[in-house]
């Protein structure tokens, strides 16, 4: 389903071999359109409309930002716009990744507070 090149997979799984996708197979749901967005300089294919935090998650990006004081890694936690732990930079604006949806050409940067 995904046209990742080997290098991308390698990078996103932290050097480990790619595992089975966490996206549930197409007999339950049809993801009608896929598009390409840029995540930290890598082009990623993702279903249009998917929550950005989820796209990052299924591509192995668990760490989205670092905490404010002790700079420890943080990822999405509540997924409903409450906890603010999934803040990323979307087209230059800091937004919770759980409130952003996959659109063509979006440029995402993770690692706030690094």
């Amino acid at each position: 389903m995904f046209n990742f090149n080997k290098k991308t997979i390698f990078k996103y799984w932290g050097g480990k071999k790619s595992k089975q996708s966490l996206r549930v197979a197409g007999n339950r749901v049809v993801r009608q359109a896929f598009t390409t967005l840029t995540i930290d300089g890598c082009e990623i294919k993702a279903p249009v409309g998917e929550i950005l935090a989820v796209t990052l998650f299924v591509n192995g990006k668990l760490t989205l930002k670092y905490s404010s004081r002790i700079k420890e890694p943080r990822g999405f936690f509540c997924l409903m716009g409450s906890c603010q732990e999934c803040l990323v930079i979307v087209d230059g604006i800091i937004l919770p990744a759980c409130q952003v949806f996959v659109q063509e050409g979006t440029i995402v940067k993770t690692g706030i507070n690094k």
Binding site: K19, Q20, L22, V24, V54, P73, F77, L79
Partner: peptide
């Protein structure tokens, strides 16, 4: 509890119900 990969139960229901994504392997 702050390790990425530790998530809420409510977050898991959103993953499953609205995104058709598993919370983990």
């Amino acid at each position: 509890w702050t390790i990425p990969g530790v998530i809420g139960l409510a977050a898991s229901t959103i993953l499953l119900k609205s995104q058709y994504v598993l919370p983990g392997q």
